[in-house]
Write a protein that binds this DNA or RNA. Structure first.
Length: 209
DNA sequence: ATCCCGAGGG
DNA sequence: CCCTCTGGAT
């Protein structure tokens, strides 16, 4: 694994390659981002973007979503997959928001992770993108790309989050996660396109493959 | 066929 | 640690 200084340098170079890193996550409220992030699990941006307008028109806040009926909600989110479990999560999440937090999205990791359907990755997305709290979401892309580059060395998402947040200043956490995710989607895919990679000369995976 | 901008449950 | 939930992309 790389030294902290080398890690920072590699990730800085990579961040400069993706100036558009967080433009996809612009939602009107933290509630909307939370809902959209839950829907995005194992789904595509296109799928999420297709369902969110009608979904937020029908359920603009936690109070309305808390009173939703599965038969109404499920068809609205069908295109994102896992629609039954997601509908259950969304309804329970909204009810918990109303009962525990007055309908507002809480600003702490501990409270967020207590919400049904919200795990550490989702919580970090909402913290970093909507609540102004530093967070470094680790999904499968961040996991794979970090290990290939050698800026982390673990299959445990929490260990990778700890390594990166320890080495990077908090103001870089969210942008770095976004960057690693985009790089993982576009270039450093499970089947990587190393010829298009701007940091391949610094990449442990490229060197050894 | 296989994999995914996950999380809950056994 | 394993499985399941679903549609869509590759």
């Amino acid at each position: 694994m790389r030294s902290p200084a080398t890690t920072r340098a590699i990730l800085k170079t990579l961040r400069a390659q993706y100036p558009d890193a967080d433009t996809e996550l612009n939602y009107a409220t933290p509630f909307e981002l939370l809902v959209a992030t839950i829907l995005s699990a194992q789904s595509t941006d296109a799928g999420v973007n297709r369902v969110t307008p009608s979904l937020f028109k029908r359920y603009p806040d936690a109070a309305s979503l808390a009173k939703a009926k599965a038969a109404d909600l499920e068809p609205l989110i069908h295109a994102t997959g896992f629609f039954r479990s997601k509908a259950r999560s969304l309804m329970g999440m909204a009810q918990a928001l109303v009962e525990r937090h007055g309908g507002k999205v809480p600003k702490s990791m501990e409270a967020l992770v207590e919400l049904p359907g919200v795990g550490r990755k989702t919580a970090n997305v909402v913290l970093g993108h909507a609540l102004g709290v530093p967070g470094l979401p680790v999904d499968r892309h961040v996991l794979r790309v970090s290990n290939r580059l050698g800026v982390a060395a673990s299959d445990d998402p929490v260990a990778v989050e700890q390594r990166l947040t320890k080495v990077l200043p908090p103001e870089d956490w969210t942008k770095t996660s976004d960057t690693l995710i985009l790089h993982g989607r576009r270039i450093c895919k499970p089947n990587p396109v190393c010829e298009m990679c701007s940091v391949r000369d610094e990449c442990e995976f490229y060197r050894k493959r």
